[in-house]
């Protein structure tokens, strides 16, 4: 995003907002991931600890989710750029 129109104090404020958002998004991603991988992988409570099958599932679940987020992020950036361009043409 272009912040060149802002003075130093305002740029700083934007920077802080972005950092706060990043932190918030990371916490959100983390808790969602725990929720999803737990729900998908763990449903047997005959033991107190995770089985190797469950651990494998959680590991695959996490890997797959990160790849999902990466791919969606790429496509999102493309689509969002296209949308912005379209909007600026209309103005």
């Amino acid at each position: 995003m272009d912040f060149s129109q802002f003075n130093e104090a305002d740029s700083m404020r934007m920077q802080q907002l972005m950092e706060r958002n990043q932190m918030r998004d990371f916490m959100r991603l983390y808790s969602n991931l725990v929720q999803r991988c737990f729900d998908s992988c763990v449903s047997d409570f005959t033991s107190k600890t995770m089985s190797s099958r469950e651990e494998g599932c959680v590991s695959r679940c996490t890997d797959k989710f990160m790849k999902h987020a990466e791919r969606v992020g790429q496509r999102f950036a493309e689509q969002n750029a296209a949308m912005m361009e379209e909007q600026s043409k209309q103005k």
Binding site: C37, K67, R71
Partner: peptide, 8 residues
């Protein structure tokens, strides 16, 4: 949500 593989 079966997570049989780690890759997409």
């Amino acid at each position: 949500d079966d997570y049989l593989e780690a890759d997409l």
